[in-house]
Write a protein that binds this DNA or RNA. Structure first.
Lengths: 217, 217
DNA sequence: TGTACATCAGTGAACGCGCGTTCACTGATGTAC
DNA sequence: TGTACATCAGTGAACGCGCGTTCACTGATGTAC
């Protein structure tokens, strides 16, 4: 993955895997410097390549970001499916599992997560991108649908359940990624606290949903 | 507020309220164009003023953003307090109220909300900014503390309750602001759907929290 | 009520910079015969 | 197995642009006497 960053040492004329290398570099740059500070030239520089090289693979900056976003939606769907597969297989267990997967993915791949949900210029008509986005959302919706059927929710309540579940994991991921964690004490082990909180959130929300949605006026 | 945008028509040499005008312009620009597309020069241009003028009021771009963020935290605290004041006054009611206020603020002032939580360059040591930030967080924490005491939560559970509540409203606000609302049908009245969902979320979460947190292993 | 003068709040030209993209090019690769 | 040649994947210089900030300046305002 970091195979050919920085110029020099044994370069041949052809890079060999510039496409992948540029994506990896772009992700690192986004994670480090945020939305600003991300430039195509800087990506090229870090990949040890001339500023014109990326155009051969991505056309322009939107193309590169769209490639990252596609990886993002696919990875998000994978992570949610993996989370569901780890669960006990019950509708609630699977709901908990996709929540776990969602948070795990966001924290493991901040750049992909941000590119998906921030308002970056993306080529949303690109077929692989559109397919990946639909797959990720479909995974969430299907899992909620099963849990909602089990809980006997009407369509309005089902939609509210989806929005609450999604909002909760999405909000938590964003707060952590944006460093908005005043609830973690100064001396505390940050990593451990985040993991424990994620676990509590995720164990909580399917039960809370079913309970709360059942009996509200 | 839009009193003196665009040059011409009756300008005197002195603007009169350039500071306020620049803040308003910057917010509009941020809401329109997002993080990129926001530049100090464009603000000055829209305020009908030379590119050097903002420096007299804000020093530099970080100063302007910090001023917006200060308004943001103060407005967020105000909105939460107003939400709590509208409630029935019970701990759960007040918790529901601050959630309502949080969402209301975020949707009404997208730029302020984003500047607070995005990773913009801010002068966090600026006293008024720091005070506003602390006030907003304090409002959330105090309301949760009362509700947690009533529900008999231990400190770990109280913290989880805070994080869940905050995450939920924060996540919903972000999804809506980022246009990530595939759960709203194409033909549907978007405004109305968002309001109805916000209402359901907010009515749900205090009850769900108390129920869910009580009996988890 | 006037007047001198300090201070405030703007101007506009200029700076150096890094950006995305284009262009004609060239070295490397792979394929047809 | 060789060889001609098309295609691929890079180079590096150049373009025009808009940016944040600086600078010396000037018009307007407000205050002391």
């Amino acid at each position: 993955m970091a195979e050919r960053e920085g110029p020099g040492e044994g370069r041949s004329y052809h890079h060999g895997s510039l496409r992948e290398s540029l994506i990896a570099t772009a992700e690192r740059l986004l994670a480090e410097r945020g939305v600003d500070g991300f430039t195509l030239r800087e990506c090229a520089r870090r990949a040890g390549v001339s500023p014109a090289a990326p155009a051969h693979h991505f056309g322009n900056v939107t193309g590169l970001l769209t490639a990252i976003a596609t990886l993002g939606f696919d990875g998000l769907a994978d992570a949610m499916e993996a989370g569901a597969a780890e669960s006990d297989g019950t509708p609630r267990g699977r709901l908990e599992g996709i929540g776990r997967g969602y948070i795990r993915f966001a924290l493991a791949h901040p750049a992909r997560f941000r590119v998906i949900f921030g308002r970056f210029p993306l080529n949303k008509a690109e077929p692989r991108f559109a397919a990946a986005a639909e797959r990720a959302y479909g995974c969430l919706a299907a899992t909620i649908a099963v849990a909602a059927r089990e809980a006997g929710l009407d369509p309005d309540a089902e939609r509210a359940a989806l929005v609450v579940a999604w909002s909760t994991v999405h909000g938590f991921a964003n707060l952590v990624l944006d460093g908005q964690t005043p609830f973690i004490a100064a001396g505390e082990d940050r990593e451990a606290a985040i993991e424990a909180l994620a676990d509590r959130i995720v164990r909580l929300f399917p039960a809370a949903l079913a309970a709360g949605l059942g009996g509200s006026p």
